[in-house]
Simulated assay, not measured.
Amino acid sequence: MKKVILAAVAVFAFSFANAQEGKFKLGAHVGLPMGDIKDSYSLNLGVDVAYLWDVADQFKAGVTTGYTAYLGKTETFDFGFGISGEIKNPTIGFIPVAGTAQYSLSDNLFVGADLGYAIYAGEGEGDGGFLYQPKFGYQTEKIEFYAGYKGISSDGATAASINLGFNYKF
């Protein structure tokens, strides 16, 4: 875990040293849980911070982090004999530490992806996992809107969601 954090700090430090060549992005996302967690979690919410620099014409790469949370549903169980109960699933949160890349298909359309590790930051015990998020979006000089599929895989299970996001570029 310490190595992952140190690597992220090193990448961010390199990014800040080259700040004149790139752009910061600050944004938010909302999504619907899919797959393994869709029955227990109702919504994915989060904030995103990224720094990208120009690698080639129409291609940018950089680093991203933030916080993403899956909000738990309350589930009702019927145990029989007139006995029932409710269980509130806890919110699970993750801090992504990832590389990000974006290719502009035109002045306004882009495809991109985030790949890295998501550190578990939710209530109770939990594991982090491999993070992947392909994206497709619309951009102007200062803003982006995107749709993406976010997956965090760990030990054969995946916390996943289909997301809509917004970024402001500085």
Rank of each mutant, 00 (worst) to 15 (best):
D36S: 02
K142I: 15
V97I: 13
E123I: 01
A118S: 13
L43C: 03
L43T: 12
I119E: 07
S42F: 05
L45P: 05
F59D: 10
F136K: 08
A98N: 10
W53C: 09
Y117A: 09
L115F: 07
S40K: 11
G66N: 03
G124W: 04
G116I: 06
Q58S: 15
E141Q: 09
I143Y: 11
Y168F: 11
G93Y: 09
Q139E: 14
S161D: 05
T91F: 00
V97D: 06
N167E: 09
Y146T: 08
P134W: 02
D48L: 11
V63P: 10
T76A: 11
A159H: 09
F130C: 10
T100K: 12
G156V: 05
L164I: 12
V49I: 15
G62H: 04
G80I: 04
M34S: 15
F79T: 12
I162M: 10
E144Y: 09
D78P: 09
D36H: 08
N163I: 08
P33S: 03
I95D: 02
T140Y: 09
D48Y: 10
Y103D: 10
T65M: 05
F81P: 11
G62P: 11
K38L: 00
K142T: 13
A121E: 02
Y117K: 02
A160S: 08
G137A: 04
Y120K: 06
Y168W: 12
S106A: 13
L43W: 02
Q139S: 14
L105S: 08
Q139C: 10
L52W: 14
